[in-house]
């Protein structure tokens, strides 16, 4: 028995909503299965999603969520790996290029920007789960958050160059050690999260720097190569998502 598209979407969104609310995986799975069974029975008898959720999926999700215990311990367990990955993203690229330095401004501003950006992403995910927005709107919001994040980071970097002295600049050999540790963290992250994303993303971001650090290229060529790989990677990612979407919803795209 297959469910209607609206019901499938509702269950997927409920899972997303509960996940971003920090509920336990096992409990999420249980309530999702229970509601799926109910929806199957209801649709078999000619009822639709609305008779089950009562018109406002967002209010209903909130209602379910409020009766489930939040798994703070589970969230805390995720934090160390998460923080390690974040640090690795920040330092690996610079360490490969050889311009890694630590200043007070960077040490304070980057974690704050990262936290705000992640907060904005999670907030958006929850909003998406509760509403039926168009793909275009979702996409615009995510690009918006990304642009603001990159903009803020660039501003911090500029300020840093002009007004702040680094209190520690590692030697070139030390930078390679740091870069190697960063790469190691990406691999551990991939095994831990069972996805390739923590390897593929750094590969696109830092791969060109790594290759070019062995070649004698001027700065402009390096910049163009970097941008080229980044744009190509972005297009590949979009194509992949489009393809996945088609595969999962053959009648709907």
């Amino acid at each position: 028995m297959t469910l209607s598209k609206a019901s499938e979407d509702f269950i997927a969104n409920l899972r997303l909503y509960l996940m971003t609310s920090g509920k336990k995986d096992a409990e999420i799975k249980e309530i999702a299965e229970e509601l799926r069974a109910h929806l199957e029975d209801a649709e078999n008898r000619g009822k639709n999603l609305e008779t089950v959720t009562g018109g406002s999926p967002e209010a209903y999700m909130k209602n379910i969520s409020s009766e489930m215990t939040t798994d703070f311990y589970g969230l805390i367990k995720l934090m160390p790996m998460f923080i390690l990955l974040l640090i690795a993203y920040f330092v690996t690229g610079s360490a490969i290029r050889g311009d890694l330095s630590f200043s007070l401004l960077k040490l304070i501003a980057f974690p704050l920007i990262a936290a705000a950006s992640i907060g904005a992403y999670i907030f958006t995910f929850r909003k998406i789960a509760g509403n039926t927005w168009s793909k275009k709107k979702e996409f615009t919001i995510f690009i918006g958050i990304q642009l603001i994040t990159v903009g803020l980071m660039s501003a911090v970097l500029l300020l840093d160059i002009f007004y702040f002295q680094p209190f520690y600049t590692p030697s070139r050999a030390m930078m390679w050690v740091i870069a190697a540790m960063g790469v190691l963290i990406f691999f551990i992250g991939a095994i831990w999260s069972k996805t390739w994303i923590t390897i593929i993303l750094p590969l696109f971001l830092f791969g060109p720097d790594f290759v070019m650090s062995f070649m004698d290229v001027d700065e402009m060529t390096a910049l163009y190569a970097n941008m080229g790989v980044f744009v190509a990677g972005f297009i590949l990612l979009m194509l992949y998502l489009l393809f996945q979407n088609k595969k999962q919803n053959p009648h709907y795209s």
Binding site: I31, E34, H38, K47, V52, G54, Y60, E67
Partner: peptide, 11 residues
């Protein structure tokens, strides 16, 4: 009004 309202109660 909404059949789903029993599930929060059951939880």
């Amino acid at each position: 009004v909404s059949e789903g309202s029993i599930y929060p109660v059951l939880l």
